[in-house]
Design a binder for these strands. Structure first.
Lengths: 142, 142
DNA sequence: TAGTAAATTATATTTATTCTAAACTGTTGA
DNA sequence: TCAACAGTTTAGAATAAATATAATTTACTA
């Protein structure tokens, strides 16, 4: 519960009512030493096992969406059967390991600046994401 | 039916048995003057209306997957509720217009070369995709 | 042209996500 | 402190994309 008060503040300042569930979700997502990638299912499992609290799927979906809207989480564009989210909202990119179905961060510095020279009239760029799909080097792949 | 024979050859050479349905799907996808983006639903609609043929959803899914495996189609990594496919399999990137839910090609030349400096031991890069999400410039957005 | 392996089909199933409506909770102000 | 109410949570239903199934049909081979 170390940072609970801090999360209550953060939520209140964001216009999100700080409920028990949302505070716990904050603890799971933001107490961690490192940023990480997760699916909704994984998040539910962590809350129920590690954090020892029952929470409904719907609440987790709602909260993750609310946090995304506020910019506390990012969804990673992948063609997976489920959505992947990232607690690291700084500008960076990803490897997607197709053997293991796992995401790996690529920091900005490891990708040459991505410059989009073309623009679309009346539109502005909201985000630029790079996904590099990787597979084992040894086997011939699909 | 102009190119039917050509598609029969192409399929046979790929080890895919050229059936009526697959040939029709080839015609819809590859006769077109321009490359295009589509969803499974859209493809079914085109076949049934424009090409005037009844085809089951399952066959369309199977065929699109078979064509992807052979490199005749590409799936575009997006967090949409359905998958988007591209008949343009050359290396290029995409805008995704979040107002209209539509994809727009960005040609290689319009994106500075994306260089991934970091590697993962034992893995090789299979594809690199850039998705730039765009929204209307005038309105404040989600 | 008969036999058979592969493909197609309608339908059922699976699964992620969203919706719904009732119960509950956090907040506000008297 | 507590009543009132808007916002939240919840279980379960609904939705929709994608996949699996198993019977029928089709394309190929000998």
């Amino acid at each position: 519960m170390a940072y609970a008060d801090q999360y209550i503040d953060k939520l209140r300042k964001s216009g999100i009512r700080p409920t028990k569930q949302r505070i716990k979700i904050c603890e799971v997502l933001f107490d961690a030493e490192k940023t990480f990638h997760f699916t909704i299912k994984e998040l539910v499992r962590i809350i129920e096992n590690q954090a020892n609290m029952k929470v409904s799927l719907a609440t987790v979906y709602n909260t993750v969406h609310a946090f995304m809207k506020k910019g506390y989480l990012k969804e990673i564009p992948l063609n997976a059967s489920q959505s992947y989210y990232d607690t690291n909202v700084t500008h960076h990119h990803h490897f997607f390991d197709e053997d293991e179905n796992k995401l790996i961060d690529i920091h900005q510095d490891d990708v040459g600046e991505v410059i989009i020279k073309r623009t679309i009239p009346g539109k502005k760029i909201r985000s630029v994401e790079v996904i590099a799909k990787i597979v084992s080097d040894n086997q011939s792949q699909k």
